[in-house]
């Protein structure tokens, strides 16, 4: 298993921090991609952050009222080693399939 840390992303317009309003997931919980993780408030608005990926929540940072700077850890996921790539998908290992058969008269000269 591998751990993947997700830092607080830049929420736009030069905001440098956000305040946690409410965590919508807790450690130990399995989350899906795009599932709302946490509600945070910036000086502009309150927003729900969707999960960037599926995985088991290992740690969350900050409780209600705590400020988190952009780029600091927000949440850590645990994922199986073979899904730990961030771009693309793991190719499936399957038995080789064929449609072409070989035919040849092999003279051993």
């Amino acid at each position: 298993m591998a751990e993947i840390s997700f830092p607080l992303p830049d929420l736009g317009e030069g905001l440098i921090e956000a305040t946690v309003l409410e965590w919508l997931v807790s450690p130990g919980e399995q989350v899906e991609r795009n599932q709302p993780l946490v509600e945070v408030e910036t000086t502009k608005s309150a927003v729900e952050l969707p999960s960037p990926q599926a995985g088991k929540v290992v740690r969350i940072y900050g409780g209600p009222g705590d400020k988190i700077n952009v780029g600091e850890p927000l949440i850590v996921f645990e994922v199986p080693d073979n899904t730990a790539g961030i771009v693309g998908t793991v190719p499936k290992e399957e038995a080789p399939k064929r449609r072409v058969r070989l035919s040849a008269v092999l003279d051993e000269d």
């Binding site: 080789p96 399939k97 064929r98 449609r99 072409v100 058969r101 070989l102 035919s103 040849a104």
Partner: peptide, 9 residues
Amino acid sequence: IDRILFGIQ
């Protein structure tokens, strides 16, 4: 696999 087999053929 089939394209390689064709090449062999």
